[in-house]
Amino acid sequence: MKQLKRYVFALIMLAVTGLLILVNRELGLRAVNTTLFSLKEMILILPPIFVLLGLLDVWVPRETMIRFLGEGSGLKGVLIAITLGSAAAGPLYGAFPVAVILMKKGAKFANILLFIGAWSTTKIPMLLFEISSMGLRFAMTRLAVSLTGIFVIAFVVERVLGRQAIDALYTRSAELDS
């Protein structure tokens, strides 16, 4: 029963999709197609990400993570966070569980935000793709704006949240499974 409750949202959406097929077959089937497509992407990308996360959680000691990404990691930490995010594969939602494990291991919050920012918009494979379809000028301009944006967003979000809220997030990430 408790398991079923977790799936209420999914079941409602499933019902809406079913209804859509009944009302407008073409639209409904298009929805099904898109969902199957996302499902394929999810099945392809998420399992290895989670396995890598499990390994990271078990093998990388907290001290190592703090040295690379923690308080006092400075410019090196910033560069590592952005490189990690840019080298990633898959859509943004894949970044969230990774970020939480990084937090649990003691990465600095600003670096977490930079990591998510990089994952969302400066991913290298996507950049190459953007250059080929939109042209170098467009892609480079957007990259420059995005990079600026990532820093501004990280800075502002950290300020707005404040120490207390951030600490609460870290406590929560530490309680995550284990």
Binding site: F9, T17, F50
Partner: peptide, 23 residues
């Protein structure tokens, strides 16, 4: 085990989201 647990943790919300995106 941890990998499976965190995957299973987001699965409900996730399946709902991809259905919604489809619609």
């Amino acid at each position: 085990r941890k990998a499976w647990k965190s995957f299973e943790n987001i699965l409900p919300q996730f399946s709902g989201i991809i259905l919604m995106v489809g619609i």
